[in-house]
Amino acid sequence: MTHYDWGSGAIVTPEEPKKKKNVQIIPAQTDLKRRAVNFVKGFDINLSPEQLEELENVVQRSTETFVRDVGKELMDCRKIVIGALGDKSRRPEAVAACGDLAYSVKALGGTFQYPLMTQIAKSMESFVADRTTANEKQLLVSQLHIDSLYVILASRVTGFGTTVEQATVAALTKLAERYELPRE
């Protein structure tokens, strides 16, 4: 509400009272820091290159498990896809299996020096994403992805491979784009 200011002789409008803050700021919980950070025991906060290499070796210890388990998963998934080619009722199961496999390989391939597998799995994952079923050609596209992943794993193609492997990835991605529809 406005009022007459006797000092300045003007009509003034008082400022709106400041709204109460609707945010609560809670101080950081320092319990972990107090318990674990010290100058005597443990690992340096900034690891040296040698320590990092040691730590990376720990991760790489699981490489053989990855090769063995993913190899088996690829074979199992391939069987499901082939089964679904002749049996429409099994197609949703095949699509779900392909989705799970693609995510798993995409997530771990690069960790174990198989970034090429991650690339192919990424293409496969996008291809089966949001699908509940697939037609025959789409199942064949999935099968081609699975076969390529298996070849890379069996031949132990670490890194991004040569131009041949890169051309294969590009071809698979193109194939996936071509048979993307219908998406049901």
């Binding site: 674990a36 950070v37 025991k41 906060i45 388990d69």
Partner: peptide, 18 residues
């Protein structure tokens, strides 16, 4: 400064074995 990881408890929630 170092971190003594033995003082901390962890929970891993992941369905993927590897």
């Amino acid at each position: 400064a170092k971190i003594d990881f033995s003082k901390i408890s962890f929970l891993i929630v992941d369905g993927d074995k590897i």
